[in-house]
Design a protein around this nucleic acid. Structure first.
Lengths: 312, 312
DNA sequence: GCGGCATTATGCCGGAAAGGCATCGCGGCG
DNA sequence: CGCCGCGATGCCTTTCCGGCATAATGCCGC
């Protein structure tokens, strides 16, 4: 027995609405006998009469009336399913998973989210606060579409591509009343003996790599006073004088006026905030997010109009 | 361009679940090339790639993953629609409209509803408190499936059929302390001069026809004291002594112990409670209700276990 | 690096089934 | 009683789905 197809439903709905096989056949642009047989087949498949044929007009049976509602709903749902699939393919619906380095993206992320929401309102963004290593793994295993992080080493990329979004100079954040806060810049020798509050080594290995390299050039080793696992707690520690913070300039955004940021002199290589992705499977939606992040880079961050989006 | 059919969805779901065209073709009991082409046609119709074919295995695209969910839901819904139509045709789902004469059916209706609910739990019963005339009209215009009422005249039926459910003797309901309440029966002459409280003529014309005929045989005319539009108010009036009530015995059910019922002697023709229906379009569900009412006639009313159903 | 093995895609053919055309049967209406 | 509108039937054509054989492709192991 041939199964029920959407064609049967389309034909049945037409007949049920016009209550006339001939007119329905015209609307469907098929001949009346073809229509009659399709309806007959449908009824045979259901073993249920759906229409009572009268010489004057057709009439719905009770089962037919119920089935009409179902058929209409089904056809509409099918239509929506098709539209939805197309919208997903165009990157107008769906969801993307974006990994981000929390303290490095405080400036960019809100802007990118805002402009992405304008570009693709139907796409849900799932944010994942991850370490660089986790992001690269997630991208490799296709669990992430995009990673926002400090530029990783070439060999860690393993086929992934990246795009530069922003650069931040390295500097020192310290309380405004600190003795070094008077100058406009800070030289490394000035802080070689100062206690430092730093990101925890376990979660931010590349931060420590950067620190080590920084001090190695002057032959010194940093004096690590405390480790913290997040920027806010780092800032709080620095604010109460537990030590200085060496960090990219974007930390100043988080600190507000509580810490003063002084770039290092001579300037070391700047921290590069990049978007990492797998060029093989960059979906439309992920591409739009990348574009939004790019725009957020060109347009300086707007301090108003960002209340609708926040990380997590 | 050929439209999307359920077949495409069935095929796609199979491939998406197994992620392997060959295996899916086996499950679907078609050859692999046929399956491949159907999927290709589906993707062409959507203009959306749903699967990424790898030599090792197939993989869903993002749009494919979304569409898979929709396709599953659609197929299940279609299946349910078919089952629903069949259930309606079998009289296991749906609704029926039943007209009823309120005071005449107080005994039968609760039992019938109860046993019908057991027989067809999925069928919603819509009750309509109607006069005989309205019921016959509703039945003629196919707005009612069944009417529970006093047996109408043959010419009022106009093609409708009826089935006898119960018969009630005509009698007199009066307060227990009334002087006539001492006997076991009442003869018409005894009440010829008594004031009567009666159903209102407008809403119960056949009741008045019955009254007139009753008295005509003895050459008297009834002395109508008050008209009421419902049994409870009739009973209340009789209870406080405004007059006697001439009514079928089933009124006693409503009155409880407040009135005493005495059958007339010699007994006039008994009131026949019948179910009226259009034999042309007696649906399965309506037939089941009729059967339930029939059973309710055989089995005497159970006084417990009726709380689940009440008129309206 | 190359053959073997899995996978999917392609070409071709036969048959089922949908569509079209002509016609019939059947009520209702004038 | 004949005409008209409607749906059903019979017959033929066309479409397209499915099957078979086979090619193309990417991976793996030796």
């Amino acid at each position: 027995m041939p199964p029920v197809e959407l064609r049967h439903l389309r034909y049945f709905v037409a007949v049920a609405e016009l209550l006339n096989f001939t007119k329905a056949a015209q609307r469907l642009r098929v001949a009346q006998p073809a229509l009659s047989r399709q309806i007959r087949d449908l009824e045979a498949e259901l073993s249920v009469p759906l229409l009572e044929r009268g010489p004057r007009a057709a009439k719905l049976t009770e089962a037919g009336a119920v089935f009409l509602g179902e058929a209409r709903a089904l056809l509409q749902r099918a239509d929506e399913a098709v539209k939805l699939a197309r919208a997903v393919a165009r990157g107008e619906r769906g969801e993307i998973h974006v990994g981000y380095a929390p303290s490095l993206t405080t400036e960019l992320l809100p802007c990118a989210l805002h402009s992405f929401h304008n570009a693709a309102p139907g796409v849900h963004v799932k944010l994942h606060d991850l370490s660089s290593e986790e992001m690269l793994r997630g991208l490799g295993e296709a669990r992430l579409h995009l990673g926002l992080m400090a530029r990783p080493s070439e060999r860690a990329l393993r086929g992934l591509k990246f795009e530069l979004l922003r650069e931040y100079p390295i500097g020192v954040a310290l309380p405004p009343r600190h003795r070094l806060a008077r100058g406009k810049t800070v030289a490394l020798p000035q802080i070689a003996d100062e206690p430092l509050v730093v990101y925890s080594r376990g979660e931010y290995p590349e931060y420590h790599a950067m620190l080590t390299e920084l001090f190695a050039k002057s032959g010194r080793t940093p004096r690590l006073a405390e480790e913290h696992d997040s920027a806010p707690s780092l800032i709080a520690a620095a604010e109460i004088g537990r030590g200085l913070v060496i960090a990219p300039a974007c930390l100043g955004i988080l600190a507000g006026g509580r810490l003063k940021f002084l770039p290092l002199h001579p300037p070391p290589p700047r921290i590069q905030l990049v978007a990492v992705f797998d060029p093989q499977r960059l979906t439309e939606a992920a591409g739009k997010f990348l574009a939004a992040a790019r725009i957020a880079e060109i347009n300086p961050p707007v301090t108003n109009s960002r209340p609708r989006h926040r990380p997590q």
